[in-house]
Write a protein that binds this DNA or RNA. Structure first.
Lengths: 335, 335
DNA sequence: ATTAATTCTTTACGCGAGTAAAGTTTTATA
DNA sequence: TATAAAACTTTACTCGCGTAAAGAATTAAT
């Protein structure tokens, strides 16, 4: 940088200022620097920069599973939102493992990020560890909330989204039976279960739950196995299934197909199946999956905004507000 | 670190050595350090460390699309392999955009990584830029090769994998028609096309190509649209379709289902569809997709090994060897 | 026990920036 | 045009660690 200062005819401190925020220098000097930059193509050393900065311009983004298209999608939108602010997103996936989630957070710590956006594993997360982390580093939780953590939360309004789906299903056919995992890892699952029960009761129907055994994140497989069992058993309370999420529904549909059960709205169909999330693949299932779309854009945008409010100290650390976005019914062929 | 040296009773240079490679100090001192570490939990500053190291312990991994389950899968396996070596993987996705691919590489440069594993976009990649990068930084290409780049390549043996699939299909029914994109971004697509043609001719059959219009990485949609057109048109050369990749096949199957065309091996089916890659979702399509599995583990492992050979200077920079792994036929219900 | 080979400690400098302070030049305001 | 404000230059120190060199302490080999 010393050398570049010499050849460009601009003092090193000014250059330093420029690289931190190009807008903080006079337009004329900014132009001179940019011209010199073209000519000598110098690039400040990332490590030296960050060594002396209290906070870097990095923002960590941690999700449970990077290979889950749902998280991949929301992570991508969040990435875009962060880039627009001039910060650099650092994506990390926890592969569904609590140890890795913690390790990711610790690694982020050593990067001294300006803030962190965390979609926690949920039930499996090390609550205490996440909590201390959120107290040390400006953080915002998204997708899944952990109660009692000192960080704002941005996510979907499961009451509303499950509500409109139950409404829709009841209006157009038999009331749905809820298909879920017995002991879900994801906190949203519990909210959806409760929302289902509440909606059903509000409409004067009796709630029915089918709870699949199985742990982990292999939702399609669990949906498939339990779906096959259920379809074979043939003793469904109603002819309509509402799955707790699309991945379960994808497995369920696959099982139904294999068992020769026709799913959909056509007269010859004996079953209706709906999902939740508008998973990228739900557009291509057979039949295409009726589901509730989460407002990815809004969630991503608000998460980033909320994080920057925390970073800039506009909100107090203990303000634990919760922002929920409504879902949108996506009507397709399966229900 | 100075402070930690004081309280732990070990000199700073020795500590420095320890953190670089815990095995490089005497076991007795290693133990003493670890005990002190428990007690005072000190963590060296990442930026200060890397500022003075010529090469960091980071390894960049760049793939075209992190949200594509195929890349997510192979990236994950590669991650594991890197972690085993004590290095730190840094995952980056290019979102299918050549500018972002270049930006990712430039960002990696400023991180001074020990090496980079790159799955290039392919045809869209900025060949010259990638080439200079590979000359500056020890790199290995995987998944997709770019001819004339000075870096080793590790990938699938498309000749073999398409070959066994064509063999299988011809042996068990009508010879396949090849379904692909007219102008694919991915270099593998060309190899598969040629492999298909060669295999068909070797078996004495006439090759037939269906080439879908459309650009970009929305393969399912392209497969769906063109699949519907083809199925509706009804003038297929044979009753068997071999798709250039699983994502096209997933779209195709969805279209076939919607059009009421039964796909599979059962007597009532009028069409067979096969794919390529053993995409994570191919297990759950309707019917389940017969495909060729790439040897993810082997490709990941060898990629990492090859990279370390380059890093350690065992291979010359211009050695441009190519390692290909055979695919494995995965017989399911669709063909 | 003696010698040689390892491993540590001490001391000291370097990396590439951030940043503070004081003085100088440029630009905006009156 | 005078004056104040803003932006810049100079100088100098800091950050936290890598690393080299020389000598002291420990361990292994004879």
């Amino acid at each position: 940088m010393e050398d570049f200062a010499a050849v460009s005819g601009i003092s090193r401190p000014t250059l330093s200022k420029f690289f931190n925020d190009p807008g903080s220098v006079r337009v004329s000097t900014k132009k001179r620097i940019e011209e010199a930059l073209e000519k000598y193509d110098y690039q400040p050393n990332l490590y030296a920069i960050n060594q002396n900065r209290r906070l870097t311009k990095n923002i960590g983004v941690v999700v449970p599973y990077l290979s889950d298209p749902f998280f991949a999608k929301i992570a991508r939108v969040i990435e875009d939102n962060i880039l627009e602010t001039g910060y650099k997103p650092v994506l990390l996936g926890s592969h569904g493992r609590p140890e890795l989630e913690i390790e990711n957070l610790e690694n982020l710590r050593s990067i001294k990020p300006a803030g962190v956006l965390l979609a926690p594993l949920g039930r499996a997360s090390d609550r205490a560890h996440v909590d201390t982390f959120c107290n040390d580093v400006p953080s915002v939780l998204f997708d899944a909330n952990i109660d009692g953590i000192g960080a704002p939360f941005v996510g979907s309004n499961n009451e509303q989204s499950v509500g409109i789906m139950v409404d829709y299903l009841c209006r157009t056919g038999e009331p749905p039976t809820f298909f879920e995992m017995k002991s879900p890892t994801n906190p949203n699952a519990f909210k959806r279960r409760n929302a289902y029960i509440a909606s059903m009761e509000a409409l004067g129907h009796e709630p029915n739950l089918i709870q699949a055994a199985g742990e982990g994140w292999e939702f399609e497989e669990i949906g498939f196995q339990e779906g096959r069992r259920v379809v074979r058993g043939g003793k469904l309370p109603t002819n309509t299934i509402l799955c707790s999420n699309d991945r379960l529904a994808i497995g369920f549909l696959s099982a139904a197909f294999e068992e020769g059960v026709r799913v959909g709205l056509e007269p010859e169909c004996t079953l209706r199946v709906a999902g939740h999330d508008d998973h990228p693949f739900s557009r291509y299932t057979c039949p295409t999956l009726t589901t509730v779309s989460q407002d990815y854009e809004a969630i991503a945008k608000r998460s980033v905004e909320t994080l920057f409010e925390r970073i800039e100290g506009k909100t107090t650390a203990d303000s634990q507000e919760e922002t929920l976005f409504d879902g949108r019914l996506v009507m397709r062929a399966s229900a």
